[in-house]
């Protein structure tokens, strides 16, 4: 059976830490974007047209907000996957340790 192990214990631990941080932070960002937080207005990719062509303001901006929020949630999901992979790597590393000694 080919080994699924492709990174060392330190790399895997690093991956776990980053993915925990990523999941928490990106999920919270997603929540705040869907709550239309004013502080995050600078991170919403709106243009002059979005404001000018808005029939019932601020629906255009709100739509952008929720779209960024969805991006955040999906990215958080990606980090869940990264975390799961890293966890597997940690397990595999441990098992290999036992096998050697």
């Amino acid at each position: 059976m080919p080994s699924l192990l492709f990174c060392g214990p330190k790399m895997a631990a690093c991956g776990i830490v980053i993915s925990i941080w990523g999941v928490i932070m990106l999920a919270m960002l997603g929540i705040f974007f869907s709550a239309k937080s004013a502080i995050l207005i600078e991170d919403v990719p709106f243009t002059e047209e979005d404001i000018r062509d808005d029939r019932e303001p601020p629906q255009n901006i709100y739509r952008l907000y929720s779209q960024v929020a969805i991006n955040c949630f999906i990215a958080a999901g990606i980090y869940v996957a990264v975390g799961a992979v890293s966890l597997c790597q940690v397990r595999l590393n441990k098992r290999q340790e036992y096998m050697v000694t």
Binding site: G22, L26, P45, L64, N71, I78
Partner: peptide, 16 residues
């Protein structure tokens, strides 16, 4: 973050 397309999540995870 500031991506209008739905594919932005990929870029977002890299920039994060």
């Amino acid at each position: 973050l500031a991506r209008r397309s739905l594919g932005g999540f990929f870029l977002l995870s890299i920039t994060f």
